[in-house]
Design a binder for these strands. Structure first.
Length: 470
RNA sequence: GGCGACGUAGCCAAGUGGUAAGGCAGGGGUCUGCAAAACCCUGAUCGCCGGUUCGAAUCCGGCCGUCGCCUCCA
């Protein structure tokens, strides 16, 4: 029972073997911080959080690094438009993104390198490349000489001639070759810049990630992740730079997530079909987003619709329902034995599914089967250690997928005063029911329901919970 | 134009040779004062055509359709 994972480099599913026994070095491309992040960014972060969690669950010691691109054309443009300082702008969106990661139950990375903190390393790396035939300087900028790299195009399966053929010649950059890309960009007036052997300027986009990987994780990392829209040119260029520099394989496994789609198209700033993480979390739970994503395979596109997110919200509630307490007294017998066996089957089925290139959809199916078994057992009066163990299995496996299974807590959070009022109304309704005043009792129930407080009359009394209507 | 992915019940979706997981929605039932929750029952031959095979959603070919990358992009 071992993990196999699809490698974009080979276009095959491969057995997962790390460079160092028991240790995974993992790098995931992070956002450029110039605007509010959208749930497409969240999808990428969630997918790689899931992979990281499953690796840890499987016993690996994972070192996880994800970066912030905090100096870039778009940041500079945005800052000029709004009259802000570009560094402050980047800091603002960096902080905001970190908050989002926490809200989305994404485990913190070991390191969050930023371009502006890596400048000296980047300059050193470009300098080393400059001593080879792979780089050349032109008017204060430094470019990578793509045609010197025989392997170029290996990841994206793109021949250099093809890459150039479809490309518009729109830049005024003075490159030897259209396919060459900038390692260092000479500063224009009014732009942030750093001194370098080639004059003032700033790093090109691709070199940042290469250098941060090399600096924080070493010459050969195990997993390099990102959205599949980064395969070309970003990741292709990272390979070119890194391997030209070290002469060693850059990443053992290239892992790419599919795009989140809204109204049939990739969610992106340029198309304008965005749902920001702020927007999403205002109406929906983090668990629902994870369920929406994990219902499909991470490499496939995910369709985001009102209907699909509503369905995800409902299935989150179903998983949560499995954690409701039992009040029965049956602790031995056939029902208990069945539950114990189903919980074991769920655990092994879950692992088999996840080992198979992170088949979260199939893994979730095992979770739902476990929920049904727990509910059946509870209805049959089962409680005690085996019941709690089954719930613990559910909680543990859900946590591997980063699902918190936490109750909403209500629109205004946990207000003690609100709870006391609700308890009072519920107890009043219980009195009314005892006197068979059904109309009044139902009026209380309906009124609370319209405030997202849902009542259930169980044999042990009435229980209530917050749940947003969807 | 080049490279690549996908097309499974009303919706989302797993499944790469042996007669279709799971979730949501719907219908019927049990439980309930009525509900809710839960449980039980209930639905598809897998875009179309042809081929390989004892046997294909799964392999091969063709066609149709959708999407991604080739420019910044998770």
């Amino acid at each position: 029972m071992t993990l196999s994972i699809y490698n974009t480099l080979s276009r095959k599913r491969e057995p997962f073997q790390t460079a160092e026994e028991g240790r995974v070095r993992m790098y995931v491309c992070g956002p450029t911080v110039y605007a509010d992040a959208h749930i497409g960014h969240a999808m990428s972060a969630i997918v790689f959080d899931m992979i990281r969690r499953y690796l840890e669950f499987s016993g690996y010691d994972v070192t996880y690094v994800t970066n912030f691109t905090d100096v870039d054309d778009k940041i500079i443009v945005r800052a000029q438009e709004t009259g802000q300082d570009p560094f402050q702008l980047a800091q603002f969106y960096t902080d905001k993104y970190l908050t989002h990661l926490s809200d989305l139950n994404i485990k913190p990375a070991d390191t969050y390198p930023r371009v502006t903190s890596e400048i000296s390393n980047i300059i050193r790396a470009i300098g080393e490349l400059g001593e080879t035939e792979y780089a050349y300087e032109m008017d204060g900028s430094v470019y990578f000489r793509v045609h010197k790299d025989d392997d170029y195009g290996r990841l994206s399966r793109r021949r250099q001639e093809d890459a150039v053929a479809g490309t518009r010649v729109g830049s005024d950059e003075r490159k030897e070759n259209e396919a060459d890309f900038a390692l260092w960009k000479a500063a224009k007036a009014g732009e942030p810049s750093w001194d370098s052997p080639w004059g003032p300027g700033r790093p090109g986009w691709h070199i940042e990630c290469s250098v941060m990987c090399l600096h924080h994780l070493g010459e050969t990392i195990d997993i390099h992740g990102g959205g599949n829209d980064l395969i070309f040119p970003h990741h292709e260029n990272e390979i070119a730079q890194s391997e030209s520099l070290t002469g060693k394989p850059f990443a053992r496994y290239w892992v790419h997530n599919g795009m989140l789609q809204l109204s049939g198209e990739k969610m992106s700033k340029s198309v304008g079909n965005l749902v920001t993480i702020d927007d999403f979390l205002q109406k929906n739970s983090a668990d629902a987003l994870r369920l929406l994503i994990f219902t499909a395979h991470y490499r496939k596109p995910v369709a985001y619709t009102e209907e699909s997110i509503a369905a995800a919200e409902r299935s989150a509630a179903r998983l949560r329902g499995g954690l409701r307490p039992a009040s029965g007294t049956v602790t031995v017998g056939e029902d208990v034995e069945n539950l114990r066996e189903t919980a074991e089957a769920a655990r092994s089925g879950f692992r088999l599914a996840m080992d198979d290139d992170l088949n979260t959809s199939s893994a979730l199916a095992h979770l739902f089967e476990l929920v049904r078994a727990i509910n059946s057992a509870r209805a049959a009066g089962v409680s005690g250690p085996f019941f709690q163990a089954a719930q613990e299995t559910l909680r543990e496996l859900a946590d591997v997928l980063g699902l918190s299974l936490a109750d909403g807590g209500g629109p205004q959070g946990d207000s003690l005063a609100a709870k006391e009022f609700i308890d009072l109304l519920v107890s009043l309704r219980t009195d009314l029911r005892q006197e068979k005043q059904w109309a009044l009792a139902d009026k209380v129930r309906d009124g609370l329901a319209s405030l997202s407080v849902h009542l259930e009359d169980t044999p042990e009394g009435t229980v209530w919970r917050f749940e947003d209507a969807t």
